[in-house]
C-alpha cells in the first residue's frame, strides 16, 4: 500500500456516512435513527449544512450531541437540546403541513425492493417467521410522512429482493402513482446508500437505478450483489471522502469509534 493511499484509507462505513452527509442541506430537518445515520447527520452539520437541524423520534430537538448516542433514547440526545418533549410531538413535526416536507428521514432495513419499499419486520411467514427483526419503530411513520428519505443498506443479494417478505415502510409502493393512490405524502425515498454504491429512483418510473459507485467497485459487482437488475447507464464514480470530511467524522463525530468500529 502506498503512503498516499494509507493517508486516505477509509472504511465502507465511513464512506456511507459521508455520502449520506452530502445529501443533507441547510434548512433540512434531519430525522435520524441509531448507528451510521446518526453519524451522517452529525457529519453534515459539522461539514456542509450547519443550518440543518437534527431531531429524534423520541422528542429531542437540535441536541448538542457532544458524545455519540447509542440509541435514540440515549441521555446524550437530551443534553443541550432546544427542547425535550416526547414521541407525540416528534411525529407530529413529520406529519405537520408546514414542517413535514422539510424533514429528511434516514432509514435502514433488512430488505428493500426496486421501489424503495422496506422490510424491517419478518423474514418468512409473518405469523411464524423464520427470522424476526425489531419491526417498524418509527420507520413506517417517517416513510409515510416526510419530504424525503435516505435509505442505508448493505449491498447483498438477500437484501435487494424482487418481493419483500413484509412491507414495513412505504417507498414508492408500486410505482409513480403508488403513494398518491394509497393516500401517503408526496415525499418518498430519494437515495439508497450502500457499502458499494448510491442508487436513486427514476423520475418517471420510480424504479431504482445506479447513480454512483465507490472507488474500486464496478457496476458489475454491484449488480452481482442484488436480487434484481437495475439501470446502470447513468452511473458515475463517487468522489472519495476528502481529508477534511474524514477528519471531522473521526475526530469530531465519533472519536471513540463506537459506530465506526
Amino acid at each position: 500500500m502506498t503512503k498516499k493511499k494509507m493517508k486516505f484509507d477509509y472504511s465502507p462505513r465511513e464512506m456511507m456516512a459521508i455520502v449520506a452527509a452530502r445529501e443533507i442541506k441547510d434548512g433540512d430537518i434531519v430525522f435520524c435513527g441509531t448507528g451510521v445515520s446518526m453519524l451522517a447527520a452529525m457529519a453534515a452539520k459539522h461539514i456542509s449544512a450547519p443550518e440543518s437541524v437534527i431531531i429524534f423520534e423520541t422528542g429531542a430537538i437540535d441536541p448538542k450531541l457532544e458524545e455519540i448516542p447509542l440509541a435514540v433514547s440515549d441521555s446524550r440526545i437530551m443534553y443541550g437540546s432546544s427542547m425535550n418533549s416526547g414521541l407525540a410531538d416528534a411525529f407530529a413535526i413529520m406529519q405537520n403541513q408546514s414542517t413535514g416536507q422539510h424533514v429528511v428521514g434516514i432509514l435502514g432495513a433488512a430488505q428493500i425492493d426496486m421501489f424503495g419499499n422496506l422490510n424491517s419486520t419478518t423474514i418468512g411467514n409473518y405469523v411464524n417467521p423464520t427470522v424476526r427483526f425489531p419491526g417498524s419503530g418509527g420507520a413506517c411513520d417517517v416513510a409515510s410522512f416526510v419530504g424525503k428519505t435516505i435509505i442505508f443498506m448493505q449491498q447483498e443479494k438477500r437484501r435487494f429482493v424482487t418481493k419483500l417478505d413484509y412491507l414495513t415502510s412505504p417507498g414508492w409502493l408500486d410505482g409513480p402513482r403508488g403513494r398518491e393512490k394509497e393516500g401517503l405524502s408526496k415525499g418518498g425515498p430519494v437515495a439508497v446508500i450502500t457499502n458499494m454504491a448510491t442508487m436513486r429512483f427514476d423520475e418517471n418510473t420510480k424504479e431504482m437505478y445506479l447513480d454512483g459507485y465507490y472507488n474500486g467497485i464496478t457496476p458489475k459487482k454491484i449488480l452481482a450483489n442484488m436480487g434484481f437488475g437495475i439501470d446502470i447507464s447513468r452511473a458515475h464514480e463517487i468522489p472519495p471522502p476528502s481529508a477534511d470530511e474524514l477528519r471531522i467524522l473521526r475526530e469530531v463525530c465519533d472519536p471513540q469509534r463506537l459506530i465506526l468500529g
Binding site: 411525529f91 406529519q95 419486520t121 409473518y126 417498524s136 413506517c140 411513520d141 409515510s144 410522512f145 413484509y166 412491507l167 414495513t168 415502510s169 412505504p170 409502493l173 403508488g178 403513494r179 393512490k181 394509497e182 393516500g183 401517503l184 405524502s185
Partner: peptide, 11 residues
C-alpha cells in the same frame, strides 16, 4: 393518522 397506508402493518 396517515402512517402505514399501503403497508403490511395495515394488511
Amino acid at each position: 393518522t396517515r402512517s402505514s397506508l399501503g403497508t403490511d402493518i395495515t394488511d
